[in-house]
Design a protein around this nucleic acid. Structure first.
Length: 885
RNA sequence: GCCGACAUGGCGGAAUCGGUAGACGCAACGGACUUAAAAUCCGUUGAGCUUUGCUCGUGUGGGUUCAAGUCCCACUGUCGGUACCA
């Protein structure tokens, strides 16, 4: 997936200079060696149900990384942060007897490859392949435990086929409101609906809509993408275009409700909920004069010439205070309503607005603007004539594109009314003590006829019922979420499996998938909204007036379902086989299939929302067995530059992982990324910090290895097959306990510090028990797999008690609670909450005994001398607090 | 403006349920080893003071409690998201 754009980098010389090349242990020899070992032995390949070697007795665990967009810049240090975390979990779960699925792949469609193709004339596939190879090399050099047999690439024809297949599932489905789920379109056909009626209900449909069009990129862009490309100097303008849309709004309610059962950060849940933006209110119908009905300007209304405008409001209780109405400048009724005198001003204003993007409209939002249309609306509650304005603070794309304006109780309306001298009528009395110029809270209805005296919530209810009875309105729920604009005019994306016949779209049969784009002579944009693929006239024209759809899908298409493909990556007959889907994605009593998903927050309302939508459609249609794709989500925090600023080429603070691996080895990079601080936190890079963990790994190495006279590495003479003593056992078992618990809670930094403590203890010993060392190597293995495997292999060669088997294939150590018990416990003695002394008592001492010992303390006595002891608080195993005055 | 997250030594951070604030690492300083340096090893390192010890100390101000980094109220600052959504 694309992340905040990172430019090409290599670590700047000043940072490299800090790290002179010192190899305290030969990581450059054993790291590639173990990587080769894992690759040749397919150590981390995991079989599917039904395959040889599949062990059904083991529980499954699916650990997923957000797959990268293989940019030309290569990995940056942010990638290995999340990847190391999932890798530790993977290795830990494997050692704990799970079948672990931990795959990697490439989100490889996208504009940068196409930009490269425009420049060089080279097919984007070649550039993509080069970049992918580089990314794969980099990831392998970090020793991640991926099952590379399951590698997927969204641009692979075998993958494109199933992305298109899923699009067709959307195309062939509609959303059944009663059952709140997707159902086959064939049901509507059976009901005898017309072609048009059916097309209007498909989950994938064609509509004319205003979009962000960039002439020099030659494509439309999602709202979220506009800023990024503008910053790179491209122009983006708004214009209406006919586009493919996906009906994600049908799922708005479920996308909110079903977040409930997910183990996601509350911030992300909130972000999605706000993005979907549910608001409850009422729609109200207003009669509006049209330009032809001069009558409205007088007292004599000519009802025959009235138009009807519907508005949405969350405050129907303020209807009596609606003193004007505003239509969005693009509202279709504006033309009919505008009077002859106002025509010129209105047209002028519309023109100004049309040239602005949403963004510009917002930037200029400080000052309200608008124009009176000359038309009037009738307030249905009191038959008052209210002026109709157009203003760009009303958006065509939300609600009905029209509002009733209540200047007394809405800040925007208030500002507007003040500027243009429109009447302001108070209809909600604020509670005592509230002094606001424009009260927007809940209060008591006043000046509101039959609503007077009611509380805001009662008034809302009463007016809504009243409107419904009169047929003037009804209770309505509105969502901010818009349907998903799903087509792009670029080349490097999946073509739609659609053809056009006599102005109608038609799906290609499954047998014709994948539909692949033809080679082009040049990849330059057409300069018009005509998609690039339209240049391939032979490919487009299928004869008999049948033409191919020339738009392509956005990058999000491939990333919406890649986690499913990993489960059954080679399946030629389906996107995912039933048995594989049920095993890896299947129910464990959880709504989500993937057990752990780690990635950045930048996809909170993009990929993570889109993927949930597709998954729900597939669930409704019976293709997957859980309603949600991702059970547990964790966001890793951004890694800042050494200067505390965001890493960027222009600041010269970018760190290239290749350089770090070169200087300190992959294990050091992995360990440092985990030792920096809590995974989810934003934190600055420090080359000195890398050196710190490098020194720790060197200490672990020297715990086992020593140089002989010839300067060769050999096992240390202090190692012995002896029984560890009590205190050694205590620290080792405490480490087993803490590291296990910390991995489970993803507190990797504290797990590492405990292993540092343990290493320091073992280093001090005159005779080092190999069993303790090997236990430490097990614990450290998920973090620093190369070093630990190498040391373990060396030990196994010499000592018979050590199994000659890679750590990755061994079980996670268990701790013995008895080893953690102490004979004597240190008790802190406080007087009035201040620490005054520390005593040692037997572990089994009773409360009374501890209290007695505490009061016997000379130091305590000296502090309570002359005072009366009021209370003695004994916290078993911890402290005694003597309260005296 | 709104929403969210965060605030602890010179720095990154630790502190499970309210119970010894500063684990672990970095940096700094002192020592050992060395002809010397690097590496390594050992030690010191929150601040202040009248230094066997005492006082202060987790953004600010208040509160609850025998006891507050942790809980409650109010505020300030930093970062992130979002923005005329009726």
């Amino acid at each position: 997936m694309r992340d905040a754009a990172f430019a090409i980098h290599s670590t700047p010389p000043q940072i490299l200079a800090m790290a002179e090349r010192r190899k305290q242990f030969p990581f450059d020899e054993f790291e590639p060696k173990w990587q080769r070992h894992w690759e040749e032995n397919k150590t981390f390949s995991v079989p599917n149900p039904g395959e040889a070697d599949f062990d059904p007795s083991k529980p499954k665990y699916y650990v997923l990384d957000m797959f990268p967009y293989p940019s030309g810049a290569g990995l940056h240090v942010g990638h290995p942060e999340g990847y190391t975390a999932t890798d530790i979990i993977t290795r830990y779960k494997r050692m704990n007897g799970f079948n672990v699925l931990h795959p990697m792949g490439w989100d490889a469609f996208g504009l940068p490859a196409e930009q490269h193709a425009i420049k060089t004339g080279e097919h984007p596939r070649i550039n993509t392949e080069n970049n992918t190879n580089n990314f794969r090399r980099q990831l392998k050099s970090l020793g991640f435990a991926y099952d590379w047999d399951r590698e997927v690439n969204t641009t692979d024809p075998a993958y494109v086929k199933w992305t298109q297949w899923i699009f067709l599932q959307l195309y062939h489905s509609y959303f059944c409101e009663e059952e709140q789920k997707a159902k086959p379109i064939s049901e509507l056909e059976a009901q005898g609906l017309s072609r048009e009626e059916i097309d209007n209900r498909r989950l994938a449909y064609v509509a004319e809509t205003p979009v962000n069009w960039s002439p020099d990129l030659g494509t439309v862009l999602a709202n979220e993408e506009v800023e990024e490309w503008r910053a790179k100097g491209h122009t983006v303008e708004r214009r209406p275009l006919r586009q493919w849309m996906l009906r994600i709004t049908a799922y708005a309610q479920r996308l909110i409700d079903e977040l409930d059962g997910l183990d996601w950060p509350t911030g992300i849940k909130l972000l999605q909920t706000n993005w979907i933006g549910r608001s409850e209110g009422a729609s109200v119908k207003f009669q509006v004069s049209s330009a032809r009905s001069e009558g409205l300007e007088t007292e004599n209304l000519n009802l025959e010439t009235l138009e009807e405008v519907e508005v949405f409001t969350t405050r129907p209780d303020t209807l009596f205070g609606a003193t004007y109405m505003v239509l969005a400048p693009e509202h279709p009724l504006v033309e009919q309503i505008t009077t002859e005198e106002q025509k010129e001003a209105v047209a002028e204003y519309q023109k100004t607005c049309a040239g602005k993007s949403d963004l510009e409209r917002t930037e200029l939002a400080k000052e309200k603007s608008g124009v009176f249309t000359g038309g009037y609306a009738i307030n249905p509650v009191n038959d008052e004539k209210i002026p109709v304005w157009i203003a760009d603070y009303v958006m065509m794309s939300y609600g009905t594109g029209a509002i009733m304006a209540v200047p007394a109780h809405d800040e925007r309306d208030h500002e507007f009314a003040e500027k243009f001298g429109i009447e302001i009528i108070e209809v909600v009395q604020a509670p005592e003590g509230t002094e606001e110029k424009c009260f927007t809270g809940n209060g008591t209805a006043v000046n509101s006829g039959f609503l007077n005296g009611l509380s805001t919530s009662e008034a809302k209810e009463k007016i809504t019922t009243w409107l419904e009875e009169k047929g003037l309105g009804k209770k309505t729920i509105n969502f901010k979420l818009r349907d998903w604009l799903f087509s792009r005019q670029r080349y490097w994306g999946e073509p739609f499996p659609i053809v056009w016949k006599e102005g109608n779209h038609e799906a290609l049969p499954e047998s014709e998938l994948p539909v692949l784009a033809p080679e082009l002579d040049d990849y330059k944009p057409t300069g018009t909204p005509e998609p690039l693929l339209s240049k391939a006239t032979e490919w487009v024209d299928l004869g008999d007036g049948v033409k191919r759809e020339t738009n392509t899908m956005p990058q999000w298409g491939g990333s919406c379902w890649y986690y499913l493909r990993y489960c059954d990556a080679q399946n030629p007959n389906a996107p995912i086989g039933k048995e594989a889907e049920e095993y890896w994605m299947g129910k464990n009593g959880n709504p989500g299939g993937v057990d752990l998903y780690i990635g950045g927050t930048e996809h909170a309302v993009l990929h993570l929302l889109y993927a949930r939508f597709w998954h729900k459609v597939l669930f409704d249609l019976g293709h997957v067995s859980t309603p949600e794709p991702f059970q547990k989500l964790v966001n890793q925090g951004l890694i800042m530059g050494e200067d505390g600023q965001k890493m960027s080429k222009s600041r010269g603070n970018v760190v290239n992982p290749d350089d770090v691996v070169d200087l300190y080895g992959a294990d050091s990079l992995r360990l440092y990324e985990m030792f920096m601080g809590p995974l989810e936190q934003v934190k600055p890079w420090s080359m000195k910090g890398v050196e710190g963990v490098f020194r720790f790994l060197a200490r672990v190495w020297r715990l086992v290895m020593d140089t002989n006279q010839e300067g060769e590495w050999e096992l240390r003479s202090k190692l012995a097959e002896s029984e560890p003593n009590k205190s050694t056992n205590k620290v080792v078992h405490a480490t087993i306990k803490k590291v296990g618990e910390d991995i489970e809670s993803m507190s990797f930094n504290t797990a590492i510090s405990q292993m540092m403590v343990c290493t320091n203890e073992l280093t001090k010993l005159e005779e080092i028990p190999v069993s303790s060392v090997v236990t430490l190597l097990h614990l450290l293995n998920p973090f620093a797999p190369h070093l630990t495997e190498e040391l373990n292999a060396s030990l196994a060669e010499k000592f018979d008690s050590i199994p000659n088997e890679p750590l990755a294939d061994q079980a996670w150590p268990e701790f013995d609670e008895d080893c953690l018990l102490e004979d004597e416990i240190e008790i802190v003695l406080q007087v009035n909450g201040k620490v005054r002394d520390k005593i040692s008592v037997p572990a089994e001492a009773s409360k009374e005994e501890v209290e007695e010992a505490a009061l016997a303390s000379e130091r305590v006595q000296s502090f309570i001398d002359g005072l009366t002891v009021r209370k003695v608080i004994v916290v078993p195993g911890r402290l005694v607090n003597v309260v005296a005055n």
